[in-house]
Nucleic acid binder design. Structure first.
Lengths: 110, 110
DNA sequence: AATATCAATCGTAATATTGCGATACAATTT
DNA sequence: AAATTGTATCGCAATATTACGATTGATATT
């Protein structure tokens, strides 16, 4: 146990859950906003902008990268992180699709 | 540890993370879709529609309820679950706001 | 009143997440 | 070559999540 029964669900549902999971921590939301506002980009700047240790930030960056939402380019000693446009848009569409499925309850339920 | 440093982040980021967390499991995504498509509504129907045990489904429903995305009305022995329209729309807007922050990289980064 | 039904909760096991300090590693600088 | 800098990774501790069977509790049904 402790493991999600992923095989039991559709590929789409799993993908959406994966993107949602990436956003399921305030630090990761904050990191994404930092990247978008471009104050930061270099990992060190992100660390400076957050109340977390370098190792913890690095871990969150790793998860965002694993989810596909960001990518990191090595620039000498430093690493420049930024939004992965393609996957970002996919995630955006998945989320948008889910949320627009619901058209409001026309007094139907409950 | 193992606990998120929630106080260290903005209220908005925490809220978005909360909604995202609710969506961060394929079973919960599937439950929401079921509720929206209205095949189900009664808890038992949801259990029947998913490859998970009754207790596990009940737990997921509890989390969705805790996040505010759904509500449950007791109807005799049964419980009728449905989308919580107000919070659903808030979540939708939060997500939409985040995703539309990013306007695409105009060749700026990386 | 006894029984059946539906759903929540409890208890437990397995695994995942969050966070940090310490360390490792790789590329610059001196 | 040695020292410095920027990041990733390791190891650990605390807590959270996922899943299930068993139990409980509350309403219906007989």
């Amino acid at each position: 146990m402790g493991t999600t029964k992923a095989e039991a669900f559709s590929v789409k549902d799993n993908k959406l859950a994966k993107y949602a999971k990436a956003l399921a921590h305030p630090a990761r939301v904050a990191i994404l906003k930092l990247l978008i506002n471009k104050q930061a980009c270099i990992c060190g700047d992100i660390v400076d902008g957050l109340p977390l240790s370098q190792s913890t930030v690095s871990q969150h960056l790793k998860e965002l990268k694993a989810a596909g939402l960001i990518k990191g380019d090595i620039e000498g000693v430093k690493v420049c992180y930024c939004i992965n446009e393609t996957e970002w848009n996919i995630a955006k569409n998945y989320m948008s699709d889910l949320f627009s499925l619901y058209k409001g309850l026309a007094g139907k339920c409950c």
